[in-house]
Nucleic acid binder design. Structure first.
Lengths: 339, 339
DNA sequence: TCCTGGCACTCGGGCAGGGCGAGTGCCAAA
DNA sequence: TTTGGCACTCGCCCTGCCCGAGTGCCAGGA
């Protein structure tokens, strides 16, 4: 168990390193923090901290930098979440209130987060699978071609073109549309499959049954389709603040950011409630081994419908970043609940 | 006027520099190209080319690199558009054919273009203002709150929530929906305003008239709204191949890419038909002064509904890039026409 | 037992100097 | 007009050197 003072030393190291981006030595530490002890004592503490794996030396005659384990301890026990200043809160409100539709909300959120944290922001669109259906619309493009439009309670719209096995009359279409909406309107996605199970059988004509089946298949497919978990990223220009060695660092990060799959998995690992911080090697994806990811769920009710977060260097201002992420998530949730 | 051979020398310089990324000297040139003359002659030609501003020396004892003006001449007079190989064409088809909806088409196009050119790809969504309306849908969220959904012939869907000045009955709603669709269905956006002008007057109830006006206003607003010109970018990881000095170069480019306004303006400058190549300082936006932009319109008919292109270093393989951009644009056009 | 000041040591960063070689410009001859 | 020859320039890279920040250890003191 580390003594109180050693924890204090670790905190000071993390803070200084985050600020200066340079390895911090014992003398500098005592000068910039009121530790009440001499550099020599700090050196002893540092030796212990290094032995325990919380800090490391880039080279023999340099100061110390925190390890992933050190940051972990810092986040878990030494740092709180820094609440935003009033002007910052006001800025969030002003900025998000102007949004006209879902795309706009997500877009603004991304820009806002990127600006507040000066890091890369990632915002997931409200998930289809946790939302409910507001309305289903069926349009005949041609007699044998339908368009299915699905509108969710979070304002998201999905559409699919369906080739029918047989021409489908306008009457049948209106019929299907009406029945579909009365059954699934307002229902959660998860409940839909059983609600429409017997729908084809209720149609007289065998051809119509086939078409109805096709439509339902497409609908269900749309509901579960995972690759449609969209997300938006922004603030990539902030990656240039990463460090000096940076072509090597930045490349895999940019690649990871383009791999929606990777990002979705990343956000998917977020715990249902509360904020998740993944530091360096805690990230499964190799390209993100020198970054930290701070993420949290957001939603219109008490329940999270999607996630958002930021990706930045492990050397980041955790309290500030966590504060910004949390504040933005809360307010986006409110916005969604209102619309 | 430059002699034939001097143009040939310029071409050789551009090709070598694009390949090696290093200043090219007279000796290397004669070795790698069959110019039929000695290094000394080439040196003389280079001196002339430099005087004319087509090439430059980074430092006194180095080889030459092309200037923007040199690339311009190369693109205009020395290089053709390199057609893609058959496997490449096949790859385009295979990759784009799997798309399920418009978002998917655009997403795949971006990835494809980025991969083919190994540069940053930018694809604009089919513009609303040049499309026509396939269907308008009106839903009552609450009695006094409507959702307007607009589906275009390019598969794009826009939605808006409308607060009605007065409750609007289900009958009136069905009525309005029907009239709206019969008037504007299949029409170009540009024609819509005059087609719906007299619609409010045809309703009996004064409150209904007010609501209809509101709906129409929202519809028209959606049609013209320029800020909704969305686009998608991809392949930013390719920026890391830019060069050695790169934090300085890459930053403004990333910033430019995040500024949708800048990008839209960039694409907006594309000539109606044919490919546009903007080299280095020809780009109005300062951050893109060391990049070239190759862009072209694409569309379902003969007519362009949107634009796409790539952003890369001025030192790029112009013939290959132009070939890829053109091929992708053509095929995306076809895909859109089919769906 | 813990803290402190002193001291010798290590090692990376930065600077200066020198050799190397690619590339140039010029010139005289073909 | 082209060519080979030649002297010159100058950036790159390697080497050696010094400097100083930072360390670990130790002996003395609270």
């Amino acid at each position: 168990m580390l003594s109180e003072r050693r924890l204090e030393v670790l905190r000071a190291i993390v803070q200084d390193y985050v600020g200066t981006e340079e390895p911090v030595g014992s003398k500098a530490l005592t000068e910039r923090h009121r530790l009440g002890v001499s550099p020599a004592t700090v050196r002893n503490d540092m030796a212990v901290l290094e032995e325990e794996g919380y800090i490391a030396q880039p080279h023999t005659s340099a100061g110390r930098i925190p390890t992933d384990k050190g940051y972990r301890l810092f986040v878990d026990r030494l740092a709180g979440v820094k609440p935003l200043s009033t002007p910052e809160r006001r800025a969030i409100h002003n900025f998000l209130d102007g949004a006209v539709d879902l795309d706009d909300v997500v877009g603004r959120t991304v820009r806002l987060l990127a600006q507040l944290t000066r890091q890369v922001a990632v915002v997931q669109y409200p998930s289809l699978t946790r939302s409910s259906i507001r309305h289903v619309e069926l349009l005949a493009l041609t007699p044998a071609r339908l368009m299915l439009v699905l509108i969710t309670d979070t304002g998201r719209v999905e559409q699919r073109v369906i080739d029918c096995p047989a021409p489908f009359g306008e009457t049948s279409l209106a019929d299907l549309r009406a029945r579909l909406n009365s059954r699934v309107g307002g229902r959660r996605f998860a409940d839909v499959p059983q609600l429409v199970q017997d729908l084809p059988e209720s149609f007289e004509e065998p051809e119509d049954r086939a078409t109805v089946s096709t439509v339902l298949a497409t609908l269900l497919e749309t509901l579960v389709e995972e690759h449609e978990e969209r997300l938006m990223i922004g603030g990539t220009a902030n990656l240039t603040r990463f460090g000096h060695d940076f072509p090597l660092t930045i490349r895999p990060v940019l690649e990871a950011l383009e791999e929606q799959v990777v990002l979705l998995k990343l956000l998917g690992e977020v715990k249902e409630s509360g904020m998740t911080v993944r530091i360096g090697h805690e990230n499964a994806y190799e390209g993100l081994n020198s970054t930290s990811v701070v993420s949290v769920g957001y939603g219109s009710g008490g329940e999270a419908v999607a996630k958002l977060g930021v990706v930045g260097p492990t050397r980041m201002d955790y309290p500030g970043t966590m504060g910004a992420v949390r504040a933005v998530a809360r307010y986006v949730g409110q916005i969604l609940a209102e619309s």
